[in-house]
Amino acid sequence: MEDTDTALTRLHPNHVKATRMVAFLSAIPFVVASMVLEAADILPTGLFVIPVILAAAIIVVRVPLRRYQARGYTMSGDRLRVVRGILFRSDTIVPFGRVQHIDVDQGPLQRSYGLATLTLHTAGTHNASVHLPGLAHEDALTMREEIRSHIRREAV
């Protein structure tokens, strides 16, 4: 019923830009390396540069969008549902009554896009911390307050 049928809330659109930026930054060394190999003239022209640039383009442009589309969350009265993954789908529900503590983190890049990551910590060994990145910072703070009001006392 509700845990499968309700539509998922999308993350903030800036999340795509942020993940693209991360992908772009990590692709740079590979592109540079392929250009260096190209300049060394070992193999026919373009054998290094073309595949590497193509792969980089896919990783920077397409993958973040697909992952963004695959991600989502639902916050209902007493639980948070987090869905993620393109190939390997994962669909996690954390009841607020089992949250031990809550983090709202912002990296420098996330900060420049006004984003934040909400992390719920549970006492379970599996899913000890459930991360939800790509929320608008104010939303993350509101969600934190909302969840905190459900935790009556932090035990353990």
């Binding site: 390997f88 789908r89 996690t92």
Partner: peptide, 21 residues
């Protein structure tokens, strides 16, 4: 229990089964 996760790989999704964690 503290949380419940349903995980599916590419084959599992096509064939309609899942792992409950």
């Amino acid at each position: 229990l503290q949380s419940v996760e349903i995980a599916q790989g590419p084959i599992a999704r096509r064939r309609g089964y899942a792992t409950l964690k």
